[in-house]
């Protein structure tokens, strides 16, 4: 700050508090709504303070869910989301590490061809090829399975490029020393490259986990069996009902938002690193 202006500081704080309030407001309302008794929300004016029915609402949502709306218990859907997010994250990280290793540390025919092939995936998000991708997954009979939920999403140009970038900065001497000591490519990868990449892996892990957890269109397309519903798409089924049970839906919304928000809050530094580096 250049000059000291107490009033300007005061207004700056005021504005930031307003900004934070704006950002928090929808979630605060959701928390308030999730603690009300069934009838309280329909009286026309929403209470502004949390009610006393939180425990029973969350318990009902967690263990029974809204089966009338065709949605399984939230506990089950959270588990599905977790499995899917972890499968996508670990899958993306492992195949990207391997392909970046191949591209940086080997010279072979069609290297550039493979590099561009991976690059093209950046330009083909699921949203632009909905029907044919669905057909492929249906032909491979991967509908309603965790394999179908995760495998088609684990190709990752972003992660491959990031690891390639990072491997290029690893000093040449590392490889020379390793080869003098007689280490083969896989040993070099496992014992030298992996430990060096650990911060990058962790930063990408945070970003990819959030990406995986928040998938919506893809689970919507390929799951018709409620056993495989994920929480983010399951909530839509509850709201499209005739008389939505808002106090329970908002409990599900809070449960669905909690895991990725906690990941960001507890791993903020890794999150910022991952976010700024994947977008370069």
């Amino acid at each position: 700050m250049v000059e000291n202006r107490p009033w300007a500081n005061f207004f700056a704080h005021l504005m930031l508090i307003g900004g934070v309030a704006l950002v928090v407001f929808p979630v605060y309302i959701a928390i308030v709504a999730s603690t009300q008794a069934p009838g309280d929300l329909l009286r026309g004016s929403l209470p502004m303070l949390p009610g006393s029915h939180g425990w029973e609402n969350y318990k009902a949502m967690w263990s029974t869910g809204l089966s009338r709306a065709g949605a399984p218990p939230a506990g089950h859907m959270l588990w599905n989301s977790f499995v899917m997010a972890m499968a996508i994250t670990i899958g993306k990280l492992s195949i990207s590490l391997l392909s970046a290793f191949a591209i940086v540390y080997f010279r072979f025919r069609f290297r550039m061809f493979f590099f561009w092939l991976i690059f093209i995936t950046l330009m083909l998000p699921v949203e632009v090829r909905i029907i044919p991708t669905y057909q492929v997954v249906a032909d491979l009979s991967m509908l309603n399975s965790f394999a179908g939920l995760s495998i088609p999403l684990i190709a990752s140009a972003t992660a491959t490029f990031l690891f390639r970038q990072f491997f290029m900065t690893v000093p040449e001497e590392m490889l020379e020393a390793a080869r003098v000591d007689g280490a083969g490519p896989l040993k070099f990868f496992k014992d030298i490259l992996m430990p060096l990449s650990i911060t990058n892996i962790a930063a990408l892990f945070v970003i990819m986990f959030i990406y995986g957890w928040n998938q919506y269109l893809w689970p919507l397309l390929i799951t018709t069996d409620p056993d495989y519903y994920t929480i983010v798409m399951g909530i839509q089924r509850m709201t499209s009902e005739e008389n939505p049970q808002w106090h329970l839906i908002m409990a599900a919304v809070v449960l669905a938002a909690l895991p990725p928000v906690l990941v960001i809050l507890f791993m903020q530094r890794l999150f910022v690193k991952g976010l700024t580096e994947t977008e370069k």
Binding site: S99, A102, V128, T133, V136, I154, A155, T160
Partner: peptide, 23 residues
């Protein structure tokens, strides 16, 4: 190197390139 690239390339071909071509 081909073996290392295989998982990424196979998934890209099956779930990205082929559907895009189909579209």
């Amino acid at each position: 190197p081909y073996a290392l690239l295989a998982p990424q390339v196979i998934i890209t071909l099956i779930f990205f390139i082929w559907p895009a071509g189909q579209a």
